[in-house]
């Protein structure tokens, strides 16, 4: 471990502690906004762990998230809350492994298409099961407040950053970057491409499921249409790409402005959120190909070159 790493870790820990102090303000609106931002930070960062280096666009976040909420919904009456989070992680991980094994052996397009409909399909299956067994939705009644949810999410964010940092330094992270650059080369140098991709996809799926499990008490009443909103997947993709997936902290830079923008638009023009989503996608492709991180790097590069010339 180098000195730079230690100082990065220290900075990360300090920022995390700072973020954890938010509930002390006692401002209900601020805390609820904090929960939303923390939720998207975890989701977008874990999404970028897989999709960043490999360039495979996963649209399965909503499916994992929904599965997680349902783990809490189904288990809350039978098991203590704390055991549900690891269960959600396992269930999400297994689902990710199945999806990954079926699609990640093949080219990226199959993966995108498969994940695109995954949330909708899971929703259909859950709805069908509920209709068959005769209950419509599930109540999740706990004494967890917004503060508790917020702290759990911040802790999870810390964990995800730590995982991302460790993966980035590991052989696995290196292998994934090579796969992202050129999959044929990766195969030729002896990387088991399918296995590497599936491994990281499992991490990202498990995290999304845990987020769902943590958020479930906030919904109180869970039904398929609220748990599996396909919109969630797209929001996560946009936030991560807007921030930039080249750095671990990149998605965070996208999450904060986009969440604020989204809140503002959906409160004043609730019908135009789809349009906003579409325009953001186009803006990312045409105006901000590397996200804010890419923009920052370009600006820094240019000023460095100017300094070198002067």
């Amino acid at each position: 471990m180098k000195r730079g790493d230690l100082s990065n870790l220290a900075w990360g820990a300090a920022l995390l502690v700072l973020a954890a102090l938010l509930p002390l303000t006692g401002d209900g609106y601020l805390i609820s906004l904090g929960v939303t931002i923390a939720m998207y930070t975890v989701l977008a960062t874990s999404w970028a762990l897989f999709s960043g280096p490999t360039h495979y666009i996963s649209l399965a976040t909503a499916a994992f998230f929904g599965v997680g909420t349902y783990v809490t919904g189904a288990g809350i009456d039978h098991l203590p809350y704390w055991t549900l989070l690891p269960i959600a992680a396992v269930v999400g991980g297994v689902l990710a492994a199945l999806v990954g094994l079926a699609t990640l052996r093949l080219s990226g397009v199959y993966f995108v298409i498969f994940t695109l409909g995954l949330a909708e399909m899971t929703r259909q299956v859950v709805t069908w099961y509920q209709n068959k067994t005769g209950h419509k939705g599930t109540y999740v009644l706990t004494d967890l407040t917004d503060n508790d949810i917020y702290w759990q999410l911040v802790a999870l964010a810390g964990l995800v950053f730590l995982i991302g940092w460790a993966v980035g330094r590991s052989r696995l992270g290196f292998a994934l970057r090579i796969i992202g650059d050129d999959e044929d080369v990766a195969r030729h140098v002896g990387i088991n491409t399918a296995l590497s991709k599936v491994a990281l996809f499992i991490v990202s799926g498990a995290v999304a499921a845990v987020v769902g499990a943590i958020i479930a008490p906030r919904y109180v009443y869970i039904e398929p249409s609220t748990a599996f909103t396909p919109m969630l997947s797209f929001q996560v993709v946009i936030m991560a790409l807007l921030g930039g997936t080249g750095r671990l902290w990149g998605p965070l830079v996208g999450v904060i402005p986009f969440t604020l923008l989204w809140e503002a638009i959906s409160s004043s023009f609730p019908n135009q959120t789809t349009l906003l989503l579409g325009l953001s996608f186009l803006a990312i492709v045409y105006l901000l190909p590397g996200g804010f991180v890419g923009l920052w790097d370009r600006v820094k590069h240019r000023s460095a070159r100017r300094r070198a010339l002067a």
């Binding site: 990226g108 397009v109 797209f234 789809t274 349009l275 906003l276 579409g278 492709v285």
Partner: peptide, 27 residues
């Protein structure tokens, strides 16, 4: 630069386009 990059860009763009079209139709 490669088929893979085009695919990623095309997917994002046409997604954007699809949402814009849905948004305009809803409007």
């Amino acid at each position: 630069k490669s088929r893979g990059m085009l695919e990623q860009d095309a997917i994002l763009t046409t997604f954007g386009l699809s949402f814009v079209m849905v948004g305009l139709m809803l409007w």
